[in-house]
């Protein structure tokens, strides 16, 4: 099968990869670039486990083709911490026990970061609706919502 050559930026690094036309951005991240932090829960845009940002916009990477990444800047969970320093959301998820199996966690964190960029001071309901595209089967969402609200508070310096 003929492959396409694609250049993009992933977590700030210039990357080039070859992909089949039908391969999704998720397939490319996981199988070609070996960035397996982004998860596949459904492959149909229904679970949010594959959430990444593309030029700053929150996307399901399973709904975008690898070839569409040409020239774009992709951010994944692997680029969320700043070296030693975890992102406040990552820290708050740990402190609030907001993860169990952890398979939804990368997508949840990426979606939560995107939510707080758009709305730094969300209500509980806004967090719940903001994360409604991200399924978690383990936690019942309680501690996730608490962690996001607490991280928002800290990030606002409140």
């Amino acid at each position: 099968m003929a492959k396409n050559r694609v250049s993009a930026t992933v977590n700030g690094d210039a990357v080039e990869f070859l992909c089949e036309t039908q391969q999704t951005l998720l397939d490319v991240l996981r199988d070609e670039l070996r960035l397996t932090g982004t998860k596949e829960g459904c492959g149909t845009g229904d679970c949010g486990a594959c959430s990444v940002t593309v030029d700053g916009r929150l996307m399901c990477s399973c709904l975008m083709l690898g070839v569409e990444a040409q020239g774009k800047s992709i951010k994944t969970i692997e680029g969320m911490a700043n070296g030693e320093a975890l992102h406040p959301l990552q820290r708050k998820f740990l402190e609030h026990a907001a993860l169990q199996c952890g398979v939804c966690t990368p997508g949840m964190l990426i979606a939560a970061r995107s939510l707080l960029e758009r709305n730094p001071d969300p209500t509980e309901q806004e967090v719940r609706y903001g994360l409604a595209g991200n399924l978690c089967r383990c936690t019942g969402y309680h501690k996730i919502v608490e962690a996001v609200l607490d991280a928002a508070r800290e990030m606002r310096g409140a």
Partner: peptide
Amino acid sequence: TRPIRPDGVDKVTGRARFAADYS
């Protein structure tokens, strides 16, 4: 008490390896 789980950091950084992550 409520210490942080040993598998926690790997799960918030994408480092935790699930079956589909092995090759």
